[in-house]
């Protein structure tokens, strides 16, 4: 089995950040905030966050904030809850949450909660259990969870639970590892994990491991590195991670590296991207791969960052 090509991955991530002008970057520019979160969190897990100019990143992040309090994926775009969370997470990485007008961001997120407890992604009203997690995490990082109706928010997430123990995007939607991560995360952050049928869900999740060691998102689908994160973090949150073979999964992720130019792909021999690079590294961190910073499965941030924020709360009280 190969080893994690740490140095190459750092170079790859830094090069993606710098390549603002190539074709792919122009096309992806609207979600640069997500890209920043993926790349920078990966760097932090690798212990190399100090290779980036924090002030430059923070001022760019803040230039993406709108009057409504929400953040857009880049300068010149509309605000959306997806990018608002990424912005808050990036600021948290650099210990710069204090630059935020907390009430303003909070009001934006609070305004997206619907009567039934669900959340919309933006003013256009798309509803998805992913947005429940994002809203809850965003407010948790700001110590403002009490500003929404948590009980209703939890009830909506629970209404997305299926008979196989998993969760879908809306009530009745098919169980999917990505949605499960969001729903379990939302329940974990609100202290509501008793709503999860842990044994049933744990079994469904460990059935996602296929012969190659990789994890898929649904029955009969191909394994993919990003599901290492969705499935693993869910299993950890419900305390069932020992039900899969960690060794085989580590091998699968390492097999997806581009050991020449850095970066990780969805499956062995595919093209790498920063999204799968982050999820591969984050997955390895959850698997306690040597010399990686531990990452928190619910906050999707390094544990030391989460502890800093929790400690900050204690001081505030």
């Amino acid at each position: 089995m190969g080893e994690l090509a740490t140095e190459k991955h750092v170079q790859y991530i830094l090069s993606v950040e710098k390549k603002k002008d190539d074709f792919q970057s122009v096309v992806m520019e609207h979600l640069r905030m997500n890209g920043a979160y993926w790349g920078l969190t990966a760097l932090d897990i690798l212990g190399k966050l100090d290779t980036v100019d924090a002030d430059e990143v923070v001022s760019w992040v803040m230039s993406c904030q709108h009057e409504s309090g929400g953040f857009s994926g880049n300068v010149g775009h509309d605000p959306h809850i997806l990018y608002t969370l990424s912005a808050v997470q990036v600021l948290a990485l650099f210990d710069k949450l204090d630059v935020l007008d907390v009430d303003k961001v909070t009001n934006y997120v609070v305004g997206l909660q619907n009567e039934d407890g669900s959340f919309s992604g933006d003013i256009w009203g798309e509803v998805d259990s992913r947005f429940s997690y994002i809203a809850i995490l965003c407010l948790s990082l700001l110590h403002q969870l009490d500003k929404i109706n948590v009980e209703k928010a939890v009830n909506f997430v629970v209404s997305c639970k299926n008979m196989d123990g998993g969760f879908g995007c809306t009530p009745g939607g098919e169980s999917h590892s990505g949605q499960i991560f969001c729903c379990v995360g939302a329940l974990a952050l609100t202290g509501s994990l008793h709503h999860v049928d842990k044994d049933l869900l744990g079994w469904w999740l460990c059935e996602r491991q296929v012969k190659s060691g990789g994890l898929n998102g649904r029955p009969e689908k191909l394994p993919d590195v990003c599901y290492s994160w969705w499935v693993l973090s869910s299993l950890i949150m419900i305390d069932r991670v020992h039900w899969i073979s960690k060794e085989k999964l580590i091998k699968f992720i390492l097999d997806c590296q581009d050991t020449e130019n850095g970066g990780i792909s969805d499956r062995p021999d595919d093209a790498v991207d920063v999204y799968h690079t982050y999820f591969g590294i984050a997955g390895l961190s959850l698997l306690e791969y040597p010399s990686l910073k531990p990452i928190d499965p619910a906050y999707a941030l390094p544990v030391d960052v989460v502890n800093r924020i929790r400690l900050g709360k204690r001081h505030a009280i």
Binding site: D22, F23, V26, V27, M28, D266, Y275, H276
Partner: peptide, 27 residues
Amino acid sequence: MVPIRLWRLPKQDFSELMGYFRAVYRA
């Protein structure tokens, strides 16, 4: 995640078009 499908268009034209778009969007 699937790769984004694109029209095979020179980068120049794409940037130009987005420039027009941003102008009407801002206005």
